[in-house]
Amino acid sequence: MSNAELQNKRDSKTSNKTQLAAIEGWMTTDGEARLVGGRGAETGSYFFPKNMAFSRNPSAPSEEIAEVHLSARGRVWSWTTNHYQPPAPYMPADPFVPYTVLAVELDEERMVVLGRLAPDCDPSTLTSGAEVEVERGVLYEDDDNQYMVWQWRPVATEAAR
């Protein structure tokens, strides 16, 4: 199955609630899950999150920034599992469940991006350099809506299904 098909399957199986982005414009909201970044027209530098107003590359301060999809896959740079509930504005599950944050290297973009590990994945199987893929997941929900965020899933786990 392609990334988009898998994502559709995941999106549809969760619930009948409306899915909204937890933050506007940081990732695709339908179809293939991709982070949305910015890219400088002159330098090719990538930026995440994107900022269309200015370039942060000092060699091209007035370059135009175009919206681009970042690579779907990257490699694990590091990770950590948090066992204590963070303060607001974190939206904890009740009861609190430990969660893992990954730092992922994107080869093409030559940058490291943070994101959560998909909650159903086991962090003890992670290794440095392992391939992971971005997907949409539920960050928190209320009575009507699910608020979606990007998360990373080890590619090997996907293959094993």
Binding site: A22, I23, W77, S78, W79, T80, T81, N82, Y84, P86, P87, A88, P89, Y90, M91, Y99, V101, A103, L114, G115, R116, T127, S128, L139, V149
Partner: peptide
């Protein structure tokens, strides 16, 4: 600084944990 808590639960110790794990791996 607000968004890192909301979207990732990335407390300060989260970053420390990432550096520590990196030292172990590297």
């Amino acid at each position: 600084d607000w968004l890192r808590f909301r979207l990732l639960g990335a407390t300060n110790p989260t970053y420390f944990g990432l550096y520590a794990r990196r030292r172990m791996e590297q």
